[in-house]
Amino acid sequence: MTIKTVGVAGCGTMGTGIAIVAARAGFATVLYDTQEPALERARGQIEAFLRKSVERGKLDAEELPKIMERVSGTTTHQGMAGCDIIIEAVFEDLEVKHALFAGLDAVCPPHTIFASNTSTISITEIAGGSGRADRTVGMHFCLPAQLMKLVEMSPGLTTSDETFAAAWEFCEAMKQVPVKTQDTPGFILNYFLIPFNNDAIRLVEQGVAEPAEIDKAIKTALGYPMGPLELLDLVGMDTQKLLCEAMHGLTNEPRAACPPLVRRMIAAGHLGKKSGRGFHDYADSKTFGA
């Protein structure tokens, strides 16, 4: 099966990034969102990103209009009927994803593959309500998708070998690096990262060390580009709480449970970098408010 036209459902942070990846690699890319303004915004963001790529010498200037020509938008399921694969990046809610795929299933030809960018929901569960359980697959991109090459690919219990192989080939054709993981909560990255970050929060909670000392220790000893608490400040405490609730709800593993300090920080408005303060203070940071 040859994939020529790619659909991206949900034009938020992830959908927009995924659309850049697909269009840049030469695929006709159809954006779908229920909100017309989201489509407009996504087109603007795609163009702005490509412009930056040209400025930085990462993209030939003549490529930019060609890529933009490959990107179209729609607010109807029908508008997605010509897609060979549809990657969904809508809200992280099983019912929303089921409703989306059921609607698309009614209009898409039989060969169209459904892929989900879900972070925490089971691919098998999403496949179960998609109308094409054998042709649904997990494709978890990293944030920001337009810069990060990694894609965690998971077959659900019902995913056919042909579907997985075709999606894998497509992923490589987008110049991404696929890795195969089981359809278990958090796949690889979030399964290990969320509890690791929680452990760092618990060290602060228990008074083992100050956030700056913890970050310094981890970066110096292990060569990580960012300390866990710096990373959490970027993720945001509100997001960390949602991730913990999803992961702990699914695995019941104590390390995945949301540390009480996260709730207190949210209540205090210490959400992280975006609010000017999290584990670290960003009052003087130039990026604050940007």
């Binding site: 990293c142 090459k149 990694l150 965690e152 890795v179 195969k180 690889i188 990255l189 990580y224 580009p225």
Partner: peptide
């Protein structure tokens, strides 16, 4: 042990996804 992924894919994922050197 539970075959979440191969050792190579597990390492590659954490290195590429989080910038870990190893």
């Amino acid at each position: 042990d539970e075959k979440l992924a191969t050792a190579e894919d597990l390492d590659r994922t954490l290195c590429m996804g989080l910038g870990y050197p190893e």
